[in-house]
Simulated scan of single mutants.
Amino acid sequence: MEATAAITSGPTPELSPESVLAAAVEVRDLEDAAAIHKLQLAADWVTLHPGEEVDTSIEYGMRDLQIAGDGAPTIDEGAVAEFALAIGVSTDTGRTYLGDAVELRHRLPRLWARVVAGQVAVWKARKVAQATRCIPPDAAAVVDQRLAWCAHRCSFAEIDRQVAKAQAEHDPDAAEQRRVEALERRHLDIDLDHVTDGIVHIDGDVDLADALALEELIRTKAATLDPELPLDVRRAQAVGLLGADGRTEV
């Protein structure tokens, strides 16, 4: 796939709103085609540098790396750095990129076919690949079947939901462990030990459903406050009012 695009230093005599939009569409199409081609090259690179079964006992020196889920090809560690250099990213970023390509081609073939056909954006397909990497092949196949046809319009939350559902069906022990680990990551810290000019820092990680409910409460409460105040100030005040209002449950 070869493509060239003219780069000009200023407006052309034919410049018009229509010509600018047409050029923007052309550039977008070129970028999409290039993204697909690069992903294919990544998968081909792994094919050209096959590894053996990963030996975790090797502590030093080059070894084969498992960069995607179970059942996907491995790759020689040195080949990862070489490809990363070629596409201008760090070795860790290159490893992730190669792993996404391999995951798609070998464990999510339906989704891979739609990506190659230009029907699903590369960035969206990579999101699915990163979510399925930790689940067994049977579960990945189920996700592929359920999401490939609609991946182009799936939210990230729906992707995570389908992955969790497939894992629960095919690897319930791992699904339960994942659920417990997710629970343990939830927290809400109000740093009362460090108060600056009457301001206290709040930080936390909560469940998506709880976050959505809290966001709705804060947005609704903030809308009732002084409109002359900046929105961020009103939102911060709304949090305090929610805590002070005994009739409101967060």
Score class of each variant (00 low, 15 high):
residue 65 L to A: 07
residue 66 Q to L: 14
residue 66 Q to E: 13
residue 66 Q to M: 10
residue 67 I to D: 08
residue 68 A to G: 05
residue 68 A to T: 01
residue 68 A to M: 00
residue 68 A to R: 04
residue 69 G to M: 13
residue 69 G to H: 13
residue 70 D to V: 04
residue 70 D to C: 00
residue 70 D to H: 08
residue 71 G to N: 00
residue 71 G to W: 08
residue 72 A to S: 09
residue 72 A to K: 00
residue 72 A to M: 01
residue 73 P to H: 00
residue 73 P to L: 05
residue 74 T to W: 12
residue 74 T to K: 08
residue 75 I to S: 09
residue 75 I to V: 14
residue 75 I to Y: 04
residue 76 D to V: 12
residue 76 D to G: 14
residue 76 D to S: 13
residue 77 E to V: 07
residue 77 E to F: 01
residue 78 G to S: 01
residue 78 G to E: 00
residue 79 A to L: 02
residue 80 V to R: 06
residue 80 V to S: 00
residue 81 A to C: 02
residue 81 A to R: 03
residue 81 A to N: 05
residue 82 E to S: 12
residue 82 E to H: 09
residue 83 F to R: 06
residue 83 F to G: 06
residue 84 A to S: 09
residue 84 A to H: 03
residue 86 A to D: 07
residue 87 I to K: 10
residue 88 G to H: 03
residue 88 G to Q: 05
residue 88 G to N: 03
residue 89 V to G: 09
residue 89 V to M: 15
residue 91 T to H: 09
residue 91 T to G: 13
residue 92 D to V: 12
residue 92 D to K: 14
residue 92 D to T: 11
residue 93 T to K: 02
residue 93 T to H: 00
residue 94 G to P: 15
residue 94 G to C: 03
residue 95 R to N: 10
residue 95 R to F: 09
residue 95 R to V: 02
residue 96 T to I: 01
residue 96 T to L: 11
residue 96 T to K: 15
residue 97 Y to S: 06
residue 97 Y to K: 08
residue 98 L to W: 03
residue 98 L to G: 00
residue 98 L to I: 00
residue 99 G to T: 02
residue 99 G to I: 01
residue 99 G to H: 05
residue 100 D to G: 12
residue 100 D to K: 00
residue 101 A to V: 11
residue 101 A to P: 03
residue 101 A to L: 11
residue 101 A to N: 10
residue 101 A to I: 11
residue 102 V to R: 06
residue 102 V to T: 14
residue 103 E to F: 03
residue 103 E to A: 13
residue 104 L to E: 03
residue 104 L to S: 06
residue 105 R to G: 02
residue 106 H to L: 02
residue 107 R to S: 09
residue 107 R to M: 08
residue 109 P to N: 08
residue 109 P to L: 04
residue 109 P to Q: 10
residue 110 R to D: 12
residue 112 W to K: 13
residue 112 W to G: 05
residue 112 W to Y: 15
residue 112 W to I: 12
residue 113 A to Q: 15
residue 115 V to A: 11
residue 115 V to K: 09
residue 116 V to M: 13
residue 117 A to D: 15
residue 117 A to W: 14
